[in-house]
């Protein structure tokens, strides 16, 4: 699997990676991994965006006379170097000694470590347990966690042989985590429906 980005900011619970190609951002809620010497770290893409590389310089609109978005980039090829896409990943688990453990790793990922998207087999292996949902539901993020949780389950369901059964299973796991908070549960369930 090809690497899609490189870590530029790292922490125990989350990290930020820069995409190698502009706009080549993994889907919100998709599972990515960072390989390490002893431990592979798994995370869920929880936020992404594209901005100028220099914090002070705000991009300006350039397409007034162009017919399409592609044409803008073609006429100003330097844009690909002046802009960058980044995504944030919430750490939800690890693989140590060949075992998937759905809790935070002992050490954070290294800066400049490569980030890979997970293939179908890895997604299936990771999603055998729903323990990671607890981390998703109980995080304070910029985006609503209900949306993120639902997105993560939807992304994973695409790799399952029976996506609906998988979603029902995930929903049941959520019911137990959110047993005292029916409103949030209801909001997530509404976003799980396909």
């Amino acid at each position: 699997m090809n690497k899609i980005g490189e870590i530029v900011e790292s922490g125990s619970s989350a990290f930020t990676a820069e995409c190698y190609e502009l706009h080549n951002i993994p889907a919100l809620g998709s599972l990515v991994k960072v390989t390490g010497q002893e431990t592979d770290i798994f995370g869920i893409v929880c936020q992404a965006g594209t901005a100028g590389i220099e914090p002070g310089r705000h991009p300006v609109a350039r397409g007034k006379d162009e017919t399409s978005e592609e044409a803008v980039y073609q006429s100003s090829p330097q844009l690909l170097k002046l802009l960058r896409s980044e995504f944030q990943v919430l750490v939800v688990g690890q693989k140590t000694s060949g075992r998937i453990l759905q809790y935070l790793p002992a050490k954070p990922a290294h800066i400049h470590a490569f980030v890979y998207p997970c293939d179908s087999a890895e997604v299936k292996e990771f999603s055998r347990s729903f323990d990671f949902l607890n981390i998703l539901v109980n995080n304070r993020l910029e985006i609503p966690t209900e949306d993120l949780t639902a997105a993560a389950l939807r992304e994973m369901s695409k790799e399952q042989t029976d996506p609906r059964a998988f979603l029902v299973g995930g929903g049941k796991a959520l019911t137990s985590i959110l047993s005292g908070d029916y409103r949030r549960l209801k909001a997530i369930l509404a976003r799980l429906k396909q």
Partner: peptide
């Protein structure tokens, strides 16, 4: 959660009902 009894899921929503059944 008492809330479920107060605002139960839509009867047409089989998906939610299936999830809630046996859990919540």
């Amino acid at each position: 959660d008492e809330e479920i009894a107060i605002s139960p899921p839509d009867t047409a929503d089989a998906f939610s009902a299936e999830i809630l059944e046996g859990t919540a």
